[in-house]
């Protein structure tokens, strides 16, 4: 059975964890950076997603530390998370390529923008 596509914020959270394990606030920051500020996750939304991703085994806690008496938990991608992100990226790329080819063929866009 085909897996359901990832919600954009979930996709970006997984992407934010590719290069290194990050704590919650760093994930928020990285998601904003990756999306050029378009996706502005709030803490309530972020932790709902992190909890679900942990349950699904796509991310895991790497370590915890106290910084200025605040708990910081660092999350990392699991092997299943890497695979899921790679599959979703391939799916998105395939869809985007198909759309671009058809738009170009119909003369509705030229390279780099709308016709």
């Amino acid at each position: 059975m085909a897996k359901a596509s990832l919600h954009e914020s979930t996709y970006l959270i997984l992407t934010a964890l590719v290069e290194a394990p990050r704590h919650g606030y760093a994930v928020l920051d990285e998601v904003r950076r990756i999306s050029d500020g378009r996706v502005d996750l709030r803490a309530g939304t972020l932790y709902a997603a992190l909890d679900r991703l942990r349950t699904e085994g796509l991310i895991d806690v790497e370590r915890e530390e106290q910084v200025q008496s605040r708990l910081r938990r660092y999350y990392r991608l699991t092997a299943a998370g890497v695979q899921r992100l790679a599959e979703e990226s391939a799916r998105l790329r395939s869809n985007a390529d198909a759309a671009s080819v058809r738009l170009r063929r119909a003369g509705l866009i030229v390279e780099g923008g709308a016709a």
Binding site: H23, G24, Y25, L28, D40, R42, A43, G44, T45, L46, Y47, V67, R70, L71, R72, R73
Partner: peptide, 26 residues
């Protein structure tokens, strides 16, 4: 505890009340 840390890290300097978006998300 972790979420409170993130919420406070994400707050603007001198912010006294939570943003509506944060309340809604929470």
């Amino acid at each position: 505890d972790e979420m409170i840390g993130v919420l406070l890290d994400d707050a603007a300097p001198g912010q006294r009340r939570p943003l509506a978006r944060d309340v809604s998300a929470l």
